[in-house]
Nucleic acid binder design. Structure first.
Lengths: 144, 144
DNA sequence: ATAATTGCAAATGCTTTGCTTGTGA
DNA sequence: TCACAAGCAAAGCATTTGCAATTAT
């Protein structure tokens, strides 16, 4: 119910609790992902994570980043987004679902939560005889 | 205001009006796209279009399908969708925007229009100081 | 006539994978 | 110890592109 404070998140701990083996590479990637939270909602792609990682561990390979990111996603620890035109981007999972507003000029991503929309989503699914499992809403906008 | 009746659409005519050169290949692709409308809301991917096309024109190449589909999209004649996990899918543009409900088991796609959601989208964009240019809402569901 | 379009195959960009070596628990 | 993870390079997949030959207007 309550939002998770960014700084209270401890991805390494979460990984451990899930029984994921903590290699140096995973620790590093997880740390970088965590840093991007405070980094004002930056949604890094694999290459961005890799670039940051290689500065610290000059031996790490992209394959490892891909594998780790996939693993974390499968465990619900991070979320993958495929916005229009581009590579997959990631963000640390939060308790409540939020949607994204993308500035088509700057690429900036704004997260928002709208309860009315969430309710409508469920209502529409039900109306068609379906149960809502997953959803995505993206608003591509231009500054006024 | 009024919906375009599927059978009233004449993509070939529309292409001509826009000044697009009508090659045999384009005529064929456009015809196939049009057929998929009556084909109960089928959203074909490039490969599907290609497979159907090569049965009729055994010389046509995938590159042509890719180029044509891109051209049509740039002219707003068809719309591209990139649903989760998969290749781009296309559908003939309609006057009013609609969203998609995807059956995660069967892959079936149901189109829906919800005015409340459309209004909320605009409202949210405005609230953040943005003008809504484009948007996508996808509901991934399971039959109840 | 001639600028645009095609087919082909090679190239691209992101992502995955096979295999050998390395390592966390 | 030993099952799992990493590094590397090769493979995969959807999509794009360069170029010579073809075609619509």
């Amino acid at each position: 119910m309550s939002k998770i404070s960014p700084f209270a998140i401890h991805l390494e701990k979460i990984c451990q609790d899930r029984g994921l083996r903590l290699t140096d590479q995973r620790k590093l990637i997880v740390r970088l992902l965590e840093e991007t939270i405070s980094d004002t909602k930056f949604h890094p792609d694999v290459d961005e994570i890799f670039k940051r990682a290689i500065k610290i561990d000059k031996k790490i390979s992209v394959a490892t980043v891909y594998r780790t990111v996939k693993l974390l996603e499968e465990h619900g620890i991070i979320e993958k987004h495929e916005f229009k035109a581009g590579k997959a981007r990631y963000e640390v999972s939060t308790e409540n679902h939020h949607d994204h507003l993308i500035d088509i000029n700057s690429g900036e991503i704004i997260e928002f939560i709208d309860d009315d929309i969430e309710k409508l989503k469920k209502k529409i699914a039900n109306k068609h005889g379906y149960e809502l499992i997953d959803h995505r809403l993206e608003l591509y906008c231009k500054k006024k």
